[in-house]
Every structure is written in C-alpha cells, then in structure tokens.
C-alpha cells in the first residue's frame, strides 16, 4: 500500500501555503499562498528577480523554503525524503530555460533517457514511445541529430518531448518563449496548448511575454514583493487598475517596481552635501 494520501480530484494539484524564503538576506517570498488547479495552464509573471523560477524549484523540491508548505498531488514537498521526492519527480516534467539536453546523447537518446533509467522496457517499445513523442513535437526526422546541431526552438521542443515521455501530471515551463523566433514561438505555444487539451496535463509556465501568455494561459498570477499581487484571467489582468498591473502590463519604467535600485542620497554621494555648496 502506498503511504501517499489520495488527493481529492477537486483539490488543486499544487497548493502553496505560507511560503517564506530568503536568499542572501533578500526576502523572496513572504507568506505566499497559491493554488494551481488540475488541468489548467497557469502563468507566473512578474518583474525579474521576484522568485518565479525559485517558486518552480520549491514545487519540485530543488530548494527547501525557510517556512511554509508546498503540496503537490497530496504530498508536502519540503517534507519528502530523497526517494519520495524522486518518485514525485517521475510524475513531473520540467522544461529548463536552456533546454538542458544531455550533450553526449543524440535527440533520440535524450528523449529515451528517462525511460531507460526508470522502466525496463523492450527496446522496440522504447523506440516506439520515443518516436511517438518526437512526432508529437514535430522532430521525428531529427532523431539522430546531436544537441549541438539543433536550433534553440528545436532544442526546446526536444526538451519538451523528453519532459512528456512519462506522460506527467504536471509540466513546469521555465521561460519557454525566450529567444524564439515567431515561428518557433507559435510551435511551442501550440504544443503547450495541445498537451494540456489532449493529455489533460496541468501546466505552469514562467514567462514575460504577455502576448504569448494571453494566447495560452487560463490564469495568470503576478508575483512581486514576495507575494501574489494580482491574479486572474490574462485579459482581465491586462486591464487591471492596480499600480502593479498597470506598470507590469503597461511596461512602465517606474512605479511600484522602482527604476532605481535602492541607494543612498545621490547628492551626498557626489559630494554636494550642505557644506560643499
């Protein structure tokens, strides 16, 4: 019998409660709460350095928080031991910003890697599964290319094929649109949407591209100052009236996120304080 409690189907797949994290003295999360419903595509947006990738690392147990709970499919991630954490990760796909393909292996072997590590399958079945996944991302013909021979968009799609090779319940995309040309961007958008609709995979994506997020996400959470400062449907949020949404979605240089990094008095630093004049 498994020790893992059976989660209710109507429960969020990811539930974060009171998450607090400090990195190098800086508060990243301050009692953050977040729910990610099953089967949804949720985007995490926010200014650079607000901890979007760090939040993904907490969800996957790559980092432990200072305080708080991160529940994924009924399991509190910070409390999991290594074996339980690895068992959970077998059900999670993670798309790294730089694809993180294994450079010693060709495309086929990269996608086959998790299968070879965790399932004792006949070679023919491995081959069929890998080719199916590569076909899904449109790269069956590139099976024998090395990662160094792929463009950025192709590498992203191979990494996606590898992430879905076990048909995970959750996929985390860390900035999947960065550096992609419009064609590759559309291909990745289509794949994210298709995987969500056909396999029912819950998706969380960290992104800055509002136009892309609007086309794919069901819900957006705007992170700033260690908390969720706004949440809702992408269009609803883009029309939001709060200072945060106005600055972020309007692309304003100054606002709640200041243009200037905190610093001392400018005049004093230049030597123009009282006596010098």
């Amino acid at each position: 019998m498994s020790d893992v409690p059976m989660p209710r189907p109507d429960e969020p797949l990811v539930r974060v409660r009171g998450l607090s994290t400090r990195l190098g003295g800086k508060v990243i999360f301050d009692a953050l709460d977040l729910d990610i419903p099953r089967g949804s595509i949720t985007a995490l947006m926010g200014p650079s350095g607000t901890g979007k990738t760090t939040l993904l690392k907490h969800i996957t147990g790559q980092m432990r928080p200072d305080a708080g709970e991160v529940w994924v499919d009924g399991r509190n991630v910070p409390e999991l031991g290594r074996d339980a954490l690895f068992a959970l990760r077998e059900c999670i796909g993670y798309l790294f910003q730089n694809s993180a393909l294994l450079t010693d292996f060709d495309v086929f072997e990269n996608v086959a890697f998790p299968l070879r590590q965790h399932a004792r399958l006949p070679e023919e079945l491995v081959r069929n599964i890998v080719l199916t996944k590569l076909q899904a991302v449109g790269l069956r013909g590139a099976a024998r290319l090395l990662p160094s021979e792929l463009s950025g968009g192709m590498a992203r799609r191979v990494a996606l094929a590898r992430a879905i090779v076990f048909d995970p319940m959750l996929i985390l995309y860390d900035e999947p649109f960065v550096g992609l040309d419009p064609i590759a961007l559309n291909q990745v958008l289509k794949l994210i949407r298709t995987l969500n609709q056909t396999l029912g995979i819950t998706s969380v994506l960290v992104a800055h591209e509002l136009s892309a997020v609007r086309r794919v996400a069901d819900r957006v959470h705007l992170l700033a100052n260690g908390k969720i400062v706004a949440a809702g449907a992408p269009d609803e949020l883009a029309r939001g009236e709060s200072d945060w949404t106005k600055q972020f979605f309007g692309g304003e240089a100054d606002g709640p996120v200041p243009f200037h990094y905190p610093a001392g008095d400018y005049a004093r630093e230049l030597g123009f304080d009282g006596g010098a004049a």
């Binding site: 068992a87 077998e90 993670y94 910003q97 730089n98 993180a100 294994l102 450079t103 590590q117 965790h118």
Partner: peptide, 17 residues
C-alpha cells in the same frame, strides 16, 4: 559544464541521481 548548462539539474528533475 554539465553543472553550468543545467544537465545535472535536469537529471535530478528526471529522478536520476
């Protein structure tokens, strides 16, 4: 270089030690 290009982190994420 495997560390710098996230290959080790990717293995961890694929539940490979």
């Amino acid at each position: 270089l495997m560390r710098a290009t996230d290959q080790l982190a990717a293995m961890e994420m694929m539940a490979v030690d």
